[in-house]
Design a protein around this nucleic acid. Sequence first.
DNA 1: TGATTAGTTCGACGTTGATCGTACTACGAT
DNA 2: ATCGTAGTACGATCAACGTCGAACTAATCA
Lengths: 104, 104
Amino acid sequence: MSTSKALPQPDREEIRIEQVLQALGEPVRLQIVRLLADQPDGIACGEIDLQVTPSTRAHHLRILREAGVISTHTEGTRRISSLRREDLDNLYPGLLPGVLAAPR
Amino acid sequence: MSTSKALPQPDREEIRIEQVLQALGEPVRLQIVRLLADQPDGIACGEIDLQVTPSTRAHHLRILREAGVISTHTEGTRRISSLRREDLDNLYPGLLPGVLAAPR
DNA sequence: TGATTAGTTCGACGTTGATCGTACTACGAT
DNA sequence: ATCGTAGTACGATCAACGTCGAACTAATCA
């Protein structure tokens, strides 16, 4: 049976720019966002190669999700995360392209 | 005699997106940026009405300057700060408009 | 059932960060 | 020269944050 449950996240109207910017202003989280930007259909968190432990990774993913930057839903034992590009582009047009234009 | 000395700030190539985002992700600093966005010619720091003491305000202005978000030069006893809009738009096109589009 | 896999939650630890008061510097005016 | 104004620098304090390990949950598979 393929379960697919979405994790709690703020509605578009609830997203606050301060939280978004603070979420993006951390190197590991910015790296996650850059990776997700190349994966329109999302990616399993575990497949993200970061220089941190699983628990730290979970922490950062939670921050991003609660800020409204990413969306995460469960598929079996996996958690698929994806950028909330439409919401962010709507609220802050240009922000995401600008961030992603930055040299790595 | 009208002295006018620019305070040290990173060159455009030295600006790093992580620092910019972190600088913007603090409520007081974001408020400063929003005020400066309406003042193309800059504004004296002291004229900014914030709910913090002068020393805290100086601290935030330094963070913004060192991140490359604002530029500050001395005019007499006053320090005039302004947004580095051209540099930011060049490095991260869309970022600033996106941030400023956010509802207060 | 039991084992495995994917991921989270919790508590702890060390670091960074925001805030303030006080002391200080620099310029301008009297 | 003295005083007032604008702003910075330093040190202290307290809260927030990033990190990890260990224990836990939930789904899958043998």
